[in-house]
Design a protein around this nucleic acid. Structure first.
Lengths: 138, 138
DNA sequence: ATTATTGCAAAACGTTTGCAGGGGG
DNA sequence: CCCCCTGCAAACGTTTTGCAATAAT
């Protein structure tokens, strides 16, 4: 179960599984990527803003969540540990964010590209902008 | 010449070529992507912060510059109009940013991926993270 | 009991805005 | 000469911090 996995990751690094951390995790689990604003407002009355920031920060350092860049802003989502690897498309007209299907050819090419400069890649982010199917017909 | 191209773009859209705009352009031309902080400090004493923001904002709307996401922050660089299309690698250890060589196979993959959801892609950004060659030997 | 974690309030930061004066066409 | 553009200073939203109280092991 996901919560067990969370507890394991936390404890392996010497952090405790607290109510706040469980709640923030649950706010993320099963949801699309969210802005801090949304996350904070959904936690309102239960968790202080500062704690949300601190928890997300910790989760990020532990590889539990990562930031994805959507337009100028960023959003938070669970990493591949809890979700499959994917990228996003961002419509410039209506602003919708669409999850793209996994593509192993693309993934391979990205890995190969990193190796051309002698780097050891550990991750990557791709965001495609354009006009989504719906907005093309307007 | 690049300044002439800048003047053309500005005038075609009804904006004038001012001293501030020329200076900001020159701060960008021939340089790697820069944070606003760096840009503002390099302009210090000559251009006010607000004007740097306003100019970058205008340049972005005119397609002269674009933001690239490096780690949590963003940096500004000239677009493909003045520079060729490329992506970046970001070293998690030393923080260096390395420009990746253009790869047409990858570019094609990305275009095809966008089409699988029926979208018309107009641009994309890829950032690869990992450990650079230098840091692997440490 | 000892240390880690949290809420609260205030500070720090990056960015945007209103306005009055200055510069470009 | 008119309007666009800029500097200045103040406002704004987001993120971080210090500290005392609380919860975890």
């Amino acid at each position: 179960m996901e919560l067990q996995k969370l507890r394991d990751i936390l404890q392996r690094k010497g952090y405790s599984m607290t109510a706040v951390r469980r709640q923030v995790f649950e706010l993320l689990d099963g949801h699309e990527s969210q802005t801090m604003q949304v996350l904070i407002s959904r936690a309102k009355g239960q968790i202080d803003r500062a704690s949300v920031y601190r928890t997300v920060d910790l989760f990020e350092r532990l590889g539990i969540v990562h930031r994805i860049n959507i337009g100028w802003k960023y959003k938070i989502e669970l990493t591949d540990l809890f979700l499959y690897h994917h990228h996003h498309f961002h419509c410039q007209k209506c602003g919708v964010t669409i999850v793209l299907p996994e593509n192993s050819t693309l993934e391979n090419n990205i890995r190969i590209l990193a190796k051309t400069i002698g780097a050891k890649p550990t991750g990557h982010q791709l965001e495609i902008q354009g006009i989504c199917q719906n907005c093309q017909t307007d």
